[in-house]
Design a protein around this nucleic acid. Sequence first.
RNA 1: GCCGCAGUAGCUCAGAUGGUAGAGCAACGCAUUCGUAAUGCGUGGGUCGGGGGUUCGAGUCCCUUCUGCGGCACCA
Length: 648
Amino acid sequence: MAQISLTFPDGNSRDYEAGVTPQEVAASISKSLSKKAVSAQIDGRHWDLQWPVEHDAAIAINTNDDPAPALELIRHDLAHIMARAVQEIWPDVQVTIGPVIENGWYYDFDRAEPFTPDDLGRIEAKMREIIAARDPVRTEIWERDRAIAHYRERGEPYKVELIEAIPGDEPLRMYWHGEWQDLCRGPHLQHTGQVPADGFRLMSVAGAYWRGDSTRPMLQRIYGVAFRTKAELAAHLTMLEEAARRDHRKLGREMDLFHMQEEAPGQVFWHPNGWSIYTSLQDYMRRMQRAHGYVEVNTPQVVDRKLWEASGHWDKYQEHMFIVEVDEEHAREKAINALKPMNCPCHVQIYNQGIKSYRDLPLRMAEFGSCNRYEPSGALHGIMRVRGFTQDDAHVFCTEEQIEGECARFIDMLAQVYRDLGFESFDIKFSTRPEKRVGSEESWDYVETALENAIKATGHPYTLDPGEGAFYGPKLDFKLTDAIGREWQLGTFQVDPNLPERLNASYVAPDGAKRRPYMLHRAILGSFERFIGILIENYEGKLPFWLAPRQVVVASIVSDADGFVGEVTDMLRKNGIRAEADTRNEKINFKVREHSVGKVPVILAVGAREVEERSVSVRRLGDKGTRSVDLDTLVAELSAEAAAPDRR
RNA sequence: GCCGCAGUAGCUCAGAUGGUAGAGCAACGCAUUCGUAAUGCGUGGGUCGGGGGUUCGAGUCCCUUCUGCGGCACCA
């Protein structure tokens, strides 16, 4: 029997017979390790304790104390245990796939009747039985034909399709959890008792297309979450409650920011408080754009289809556009228009007025462009995904040599904006040519290289996302992480050689020749609607002072103070602070509670003493105590704080 | 768009088995003038998402439609 040498994490190595399993290796080290072992890493690859090792390798034994492999195994085994439980309860249900995902797993089933929330309880109970039974897990490698025949015989076409999609040179592995069998690449735990019976929960049922393809059958998906301990599960559930507390739809109502109604699905009715946030943000962005060399324009909402045909959107996105037909009685000629779903074709129209010289480039053209897109009904979500929205959109017309500089300039601006708005870091994703695309391979080669050089030159780290570019060009996407760790994709920077071509944009080069400019599509916030939703959730409604719709409430403690309350409120307003007086006949406790719940950053209480001293008692949102401040100090303090970050 | 769930007062929600609606908070009125997260009492408020049907009778049962929610798909 051949010998192999296995090297342990401490650098020592030991010889074993080829085909030794990590379980045997662990047992050779100590009894306790063999008991605690859950899986191994063989040359860095996650390895089942039952799989033989045939060659020299680096080996590490994983135990339940190694979170990443342990969670992977627990979740993966639970996926199988759940599938087994479902088939034990409903033998006619077909199983398909069940991968591990963030925080848990899901498994997709084919079943005529959808699962009900009540079914989840039954399934969970059955799963606990399986866990309590401590059924052994075993695995075998099967011949392809045998596996296909097995699933054909059982009438499991989904599994047959899965097997057929696995490359021919890859071994097919079967796993058994007790008597229950599933095709699976593994690794798995050693018996069902190794998953924590109190560390998981089935969360929800949802439809999901087979293989993610909307033309294929819809399966029933069950989602579960799982952790190593009951405490970790509880912490996760608490985090979900935290996210629900921050929900912008809930806070939007509580803070009286906006509403939506069924007569205008996917569109926002901004209330005074919400519109205040919107305009503060827009004013800030307008100043930033000016400071970074943009000109601002505004273009029509209703545009003849001829322009959309020319730009290519009519062909590609017609079903997502609001089409506007004017009644012939009202129009001389029947015209078919569309609400603009984006601003770029209109910006090219402005660019095309007059002849442009290379001296005019780069031309940075910005618009707070109101767009309408007929988003699929299932995509709508609060103010985050809507049908009517406004982008902080801009297009940079430039030469190919200018792409790199414009990219760097854009990232500078974006970094400053994100920092000003309370997000310290962001991730960059570089997306290259997709399968469906326009333009020559040479052109793609050129712009991908240019964009990659540009991003490299800025020194920002980035990850590659092959095949995810726009149909007309490669792009950079910018993602940030919010206060509770959720990621949001916001900014974008896209190189487009296509639209200038289609809409015949040109400039006169130094040699007198007519050339095509490149067009760079870029946005930092994305849409105001979505970004404000993100801000609300990130800050849990407690917006920074400069963005808060009601910055200060001046509340009287006794009605004798009402006059002074009015005086203080007026003075703050004259100094540009959004202040309101609250002289209702209510106790100060009541007013403090109400305005605290309403997320007003500063409450000023005024009673007899303050009137006497011409001062106010300042209470900050989130603070317990108060302090007494004279009016001059108050105005100086609040004015400084009310200034937007770019004005400090 | 697809699968599932839901829609009752401004908000949160209750209304076995069909017998024409109820609570808390909010609003409004009165009293109370009170020192930092809910003062007391009283009053008003709903064509039960829309349309159609079954029935003597529908919030409740059936059909249809709209909207929302959770996923999937989509996201120029």
